[in-house]
Amino acid sequence: MGKKLLEVKNLKKYFKTPNGALHAVDDVTFTIEEGKTLGVVGESGCGKSTLGRTVLGLLESTDGHIIFDGEDVTHVNKAKFHELRRDMQIIFQDPYSSLNPRMAVADIIAEPLEIFNICKTKEEKEEKVKELMDLVGLDQRFINSYPHELDGGRRQRIGIARALALEPRFIVCDEPVSALDVSIQAQILNLMQDLQEQRNLSYMFITHNLSVVKHISDDIMVMYLGQMVELCEGKELFKNNLHPYTKALLSAIPKASIKSKIDRIVLRGELTSPINPHPGCRFAPRCNYAGDECFSVNPTLEEILPGHFVSCHKVKEINNL
């Protein structure tokens, strides 16, 4: 087993809304080892992006602990927060809105270097920017271009270069490829894998795209309305998924093949938002197996099989364990 880089324990993030507390992230626990990728999957509104931002400290957590490299960083002062930016970075979903349209590529990539006074001279800075552009496969002729002159894939490469400028050890990737076309998506995924190998990076890879998450992740966590429902090794999740939501989610993906027609579990209803949630399983109203207990008692995350955590009252019954 590798060295634990990030440990998150019982993390909660509630937002105040006029209608009550929105439980965006509710009691989430996981660890990420050095050089590994944790995939976080869920549908829109399940709190996966909020989780990413809370882990980074961009949002203040309501409760729980975030331990980075053995140090509790849940509540840190401004100076420590600033220092942590060198280790923890983020890549955003939208390569259009995440780059300042008034800044040229060179300025965007150089900004973190300027903030941390990494380069002594202008030449050194330019050298470093070019190095980063090479690293992410961005042609140097774009150094003076503006973001709007480039396509989505190249813009996402700028975002990656900016995140890498400080040589972080941990990167939250918030849907980094969902705004891109498939052929470009594959280029970016390969790039991210290469970078992980070269620099021993740890990723928290947030996405709604199950085939992408399977491809890139070591471990996968499935979230539903702010809660984690299943966490295990990636291969295990696709072979031997236990939670009824995971099963429905996996069967809902349209497969690019006409051979394997599977029986699809079509869920009733839609996601709601977890404002002042009632006790009980949040998936129960849409679950085909829900019993009385599911509507009244919160399920807890249990290690059902070695390394395979599920939060469901009926998990043993459903899977004949």
């Binding site: 930016r85 983020i90 995440s98 903030i115 900016r162 400080l166």
Partner: peptide, 20 residues
């Protein structure tokens, strides 16, 4: 816009975020 959040994430100060 996300680029403001991005600036926070790379450690930019309030002053820098406002002016730049």
């Amino acid at each position: 816009q996300e680029f403001v959040e991005a600036a926070t994430a790379i450690g930019a100060s309030d002053f820098r975020i406002i002016t730049k």
